[in-house]
Design a protein around this nucleic acid. Structure first.
Lengths: 377, 377
DNA sequence: TTGTATGCGTTATCAA
DNA sequence: TTGATAACGCATACAA
């Protein structure tokens, strides 16, 4: 009685479309026979091939009607055999579990959809074996391009070699490879790091603690560089005792736990700090948890910033001030890049890979506040 | 200097594998010529076809070596043309943005990987047009089965008709259709509803507020039924003034806002309640936000339960007591179900769709507490 | 134990 | 303006 869906489907009798038997595939030949023309003509018409210009309108109409009547659907596989185009793009995530991935995925999917491409999805679970096996499978399926979302683990150069040799355009998101065969889309980490610190500095914070990213991650170094440069430019002193670093880890969600633990360490030092800049949002959330548990209120006693702006940052309590990566746009751009590559390949043009750095954006929420009455001792 | 990845790839010279030219595809014929056997024999050997039993071991070895040497990779498209098998499964999400989806996806992906199937991914953005267009595309790519993750919006019966007519096994997760053509995997919502209330009841709560799910959602009714049945069985009285309902919405993340708003309404009534049972986790998070803002501490003054156990529930502050849906297992099971369907189709057996109800699990965290000192007036 | 021939559904070339 | 034909890469029935 509560389930509305039962009435949702409009009850206009049987869904028509091909009254024919069970599993019969409708081929171009069927359309040809039904319409009284040859398969060649049918192909030309239904694909709107160049030659379609010379086909009589009446013919076109009859063919199109026959196709619709029979429920004809082109066979992507057979089509590939001739055209070498699969209308398929490989999409490899290093770990879909990372909240970073969802918006990126949305961006990619949406852009591909606009081009009538279909993504073949793979999740490497951060395992190299799995990554390579998937790569193999994607090549068997003849994806026309590859997008790798490598936010957390390292991609070995193999990928690049094997792909570029086959002229399959590839782009990475959240990582970049040496050399210029593979395109990449990344946030400008240095600017992002600066933004976060600048924000805290503007709020008047001077005793600031830092939780740096794991050495393993490509983002860690430039983000920290941004911090250092800004600190230097305004004469802010960074107390080494207040700088900790997340350990390397293969679990993209380990940041929470890491942030929690390192913040506890920080508190044990009994060194005063009025703000904490965390490597990313999960780390920040873990830090907030530790602070709160220790009776340090955020943001009253201590401001905290994150990085990424994953979905839960807006929903946490307090909501998180963070440096936003334009994740969805990054997905979109990666698609546009490889699409260019595909087009170039089709036209046998040379094509250069591109390296894109996207601008981050400071999102101010409730976890940061003017230093006025902040204190942690 | 901090970027480790530069040393990661082992620098063992050039990646070998096919020293041949650029984009040349290696076909079975190449392997045949190189090994000195016919394409038929090569096919038999490389596929381990039944006839392979009769092939001389030496022959097998030479063929396999040639294949490896040339870097032969079977062409999935060409293979499909003969075998009618694409080794591909369509995966349609109604809205990937819902945190519900990630673990489900992980489960599906993992199970497919075990069977060497590859998922073609689609996200309907909750739009029917888009859903139908994707369905079309998936059919053009001849997916062997379809899995629909329809947690939030309504699937119209069309799907079913069009698919079952083509003998493509289909399963839905988080939704079920009338009739018996489409399999489904759902959590046992009624039991889950009961569990949540039972937990609160055991903690001594008697004045309990409820935020029910939107009418539109298939989960709402049975979950509420579980609540009512349990309340009745223990003689718990449910105050209608403390029962609110989320409005229908197409945004799976609207729960947070809805929970927030409805909880404010609830507080304005000035009616005492010591616990709140929310429809799902996001709603619970929204509710907690509203309570906290109003000075009502969770769980000291008011206990809150969610439903689903999405990733952020463990990370929120306070962490959320909730009814866990075994999302990953649900994904796995859906795959196993359609795989059975595929196998049945191959063997021309009859096959019955299945409807699975999975057991939920109560996860007790920090948002619920003994009633002893709870109060909201 | 292995090879030959055929066709899957499509598109492109050429001929009519 | 349209049709006949061949070929894409593979797997199978049949022949050897």
């Amino acid at each position: 009685m509560d389930e509305l869906w039962q009435n949702d489907g409009n009850p206009r009798g049987l869904p028509l479309k091909r009254a024919s038997g069970k599993n019969q595939m409708v081929t171009m030949r069927d359309v040809a026979e039904d319409s009284g023309f040859s398969p060649a003509t049918v192909s030309i018409v239904l694909n709107n091939a160049p030659l379609a210009r010379y086909i009589a309108p009446a013919t076109k109409k009859r063919i199109e009607e026959a196709a619709k009547k029979l429920g004809y659907r082109p066979n992507a596989m057979a089509r590939f055999l001739r055209s070498k185009r699969s209308h398929t793009v490989g999409l490899v995530f290093f770990d879909i579990t990372d909240p970073f991935c969802t918006p990126v995925m949305r961006g990619i999917e949406n852009a591909l959809y606009q081009s009538s491409y279909v993504p073949i999805f793979a999740d490497a679970h951060n395992q190299r074996n799995r990554f390579e096996r998937y790569l193999e499978m994607l090549l068997e399926h003849h994806v026309e391009a590859l997008i790798v979302v490598a936010n957390w683990l390292v991609v070995d150069i193999h990928v690049l070699a094997d792909l570029s040799k086959r002229n399959i355009p590839a782009a990475t998101i959240g990582w970049e490879l040496p050399g210029d065969t593979v395109s990449s889309v990344m946030v400008d980490n240095e600017t992002g790091g600066r933004m976060a610190l600048e924000h805290l500095h503007q709020l008047g914070h001077r005793k600031i603690a830092f939780i740096r990213g794991p050495k393993m991650l490509i983002d860690s170094a430039p983000r920290w560089r941004g911090v250092q440069k800004f600190a230097h430019s305004v004469g802010l002193e960074i107390d080494p005792a207040l700088v900790l670093q997340l350990p390397d880890s293969f679990d993209p969600n380990s940041g929470f736990e890491g942030g929690h633990r390192l913040t506890e360490e920080l508190l044990q030092k009994k060194k005063k700090f009025t703000a904490l800049m965390a490597f990313d949002d999960l780390t920040a959330l873990g830090a907030i948890r530790a602070l709160t548990k220790a009776g340090v209120k955020v943001p009253e006693h201590c401001s905290v910033t994150g990085f990424d702006d994953v979905a839960m940052s807006a929903l946490s309590a307090p909501s998180l001030t963070t440096v936003r990566q334009p994740l969805e746009a990054m997905g979109t751009n990666a698609v546009n890049i490889v699409m260019e590559g595909i087009k170039a390949g089709l036209e046998k043009r040379e094509w250069n890979s591109v390296r894109q750095k996207m601008n981050p954006e400071l999102v101010i929420r409730d976890s940061t506040r003017d230093v006025a009455h902040s204190s942690t001792d």
